[in-house]
Design a protein around this nucleic acid. Structure first.
Lengths: 332, 332
DNA sequence: AACGTTGGCGTCAACGTTGACGTAGCTGCC
DNA sequence: GGCAGCTACGTCAACGTTGACGCCAACGTT
């Protein structure tokens, strides 16, 4: 990288000290309108860009935030990442993106790397059993926003959807539309603490007056393939199954494929409900009934929480739980 | 952010100078095996992490690369971004991700921001008419890899798929399977220079011995909605149309929806070919015939080009053109 | 014994910026 | 006239690291 334009270059051109240029650039005050204009003109003319590394070295603010997710293969994530990135840029920060493949070790690497780049804060979709890892960083002073899990520490905020309520809604919807032999395809990547969907599913069943038969639950990787094998197993275990709630829409889509492959019609023979409401869900046939997670809302809450943690450190934040909504389409 | 562990901390603990610790950490040589061990132990024990900002300030290498794309709503991009990010991490670099919404002004902002963060290089899916912008950065010393467009400058490499050949293959496939009244839904975001798909489509028609009737081409936003309106227009203009090549798979999926909505069966009444081979394409019904772009290959080529530009600047690189492949499924 | 060479390490300055502090000149007020 | 208080700057050091260079002891060579 060749020479860049520095504060000093601007300063000598204008005939002031670098410190004054710095004041103007950062709008600190303490300069006359006349010098302000001259400095800004020179900045424009020379094409000066502040060196964020130097600034970050001294202010301990790099103007960057990290977004750490399990992966981008689930379409839920990219759409969210894009919104978060937009909001970060509106707040004048640049986003580092990193995916962990849902692997705790990789997540550790990623956080180490982000830390050494002095990110101002991170938003994390945590991998399995990594809450301690995250609270440790938070305690060391890194603002952390955790999505879809709970923890308590300084510099830490939690935002999640009310998935338990969503799952209960989905279950009740299945029961209300006449299904009584239900199953669920859950995720093998969720530790017990985070099995809100399963809790909601069971609660929905318990709450229902109608005495539905005991449910089947299988746990799979949360992918289309996982949904396919999951549905296969459910049908094997309980051939008369007539309603399935899936961990997410990808799983649900896989489940519908498997059902069709086994000659069961959706929704006539078996109803399927997903969770997320990814773009694809309204495009498949039959269009998927699903629990919609409001991504604009989530990105709003998450970035706001992060920026508050960064700009006003120390003040504790209550965990946020966001409402969800059932979108009924053709698969039920 | 509270105090971090620095070279000096490690140095005083071991009883050597910071410079020596630096030598060990960077494996520069010039130290004994004994001190190496002691230093590494201390590094481990204190949890030392090099401060990339300070290092970058002096070496002018920040250990970061930028990935600049139009957006993540097209599923083609995330899958690619993830692979590129993985490769970057394998090479010891961290990835900044930034989306431009395909807006030249936003792209300018994004590049400015990345530049001020002293990224070592960028991979860009360029927005409309931004080649000058990019070559300007390249000339100022920033390694730039441009995907799917051409330019010539120092510090610049180009990688693209042979979309013209792919489009020609798709077109010939349509003709070979008995379609003769063809249309294409192209992208309104492609400048004339980058309309390789259209060129291939027309070439495929010209090359065919059978005298097919003159084709219709409409230009839409490359989204599902764009595909829907595009197919609508094609049918209006030419009610007997029986084969459509779409700019990408999202457009193709939209086109199939519109065809069905108008009572035309796919593939019986009208055949549809897409381009990209996103995951969704094998999942929709009918499964989409498409021109597959090999994402692992692209990410490999792109990252290799970038790392070569970074590590061996100055040597010119010929543009790379990657082969594509037709995947025949049910929609033709 | 004198000399060059090498390995192993320290010293110092610099990267570009900002925090802390200093100061010259002016204004206003008793 | 003296002094406080302001405005508009400048000066200096520091952030954590590495590049350039220098130094000393140990070793081999003539």
């Amino acid at each position: 990288m060749p020479k860049e334009v520095t504060l000093r270059d601007v300063a000598t051109q204008v005939g002031v000290s670098p410190r004054t240029v710095s004041r103007v650039v950062n709008d600190e005050g303490g300069f006359s309108e006349a010098t302000r204009q001259k400095v800004l003109d020179a900045v424009e003319q020379l094409g000066y860009q502040p060196n964020m590394l130097a600034r970050g070295l001294i202010t301990r603010r790099s103007g960057t935030v990290g977004l750490v997710g399990g992966g981008m293969t689930d379409p839920f994530f990219p759409a969210l990442a894009e919104r978060i990135q937009r909001k970060a840029r509106e707040a004048g920060r640049t986003m580092f993106f990193a995916s962990t493949d849902s692997d705790p070790a990789r997540q550790a690497d990623v956080l180490k790397s982000l830390w050494s780049h002095a990110v101002d804060g991170v938003i994390v979709f945590p991998a399995l059993d990594t809450i301690d890892q995250l609270t440790s960083y938070a305690r060391r002073g890194l603002p952390v926003v955790i999505v879809d899990d709970q923890a308590d520490a300084p510099n830490l905020a939690c935002v999640s959807f009310d998935l338990e309520a969503g799952a209960a809604m989905a279950t009740r919807h299945l029961l209300d539309t006449g299904r009584s032999r239900l199953g669920m395809i859950a995720s093998s990547l969720s530790p017990p603490r985070r099995r809100n969907r399963e809790r909601g599913f069971l609660r929905g069943l318990r709450d229902s007056a109608a005495g539905a038969s005991p449910p089947e639950v299988v746990r799979m990787l949360p992918t289309v393939e996982g949904g396919e094998t999951g549905m296969g197993q459910l049908i094997d275990r309980r051939p008369d199954i007539d309603g399935v709630f899936a961990y997410n829409d990808l799983v649900a889509i896989g489940a519908m494929r498997a059902a069709k492959a086994r000659g069961r019609r959706v929704p006539d023979d078996i109803a399927v409900v997903g969770c997320d409401d990814i773009d694809m869900s309204s495009l498949v046939t039959p269009a998927l009934t699903t629990v919609r997670l409001d991504r604009p809302l989530l990105s709003e809450e998450v970035t706001q929480a992060l920026h508050e943690l960064i700009d006003a450190p120390g003040i504790p934040r209550d965990p946020v739980k966001l409402p969800v909504e059932l979108v009924v389409r053709e698969s039920t």
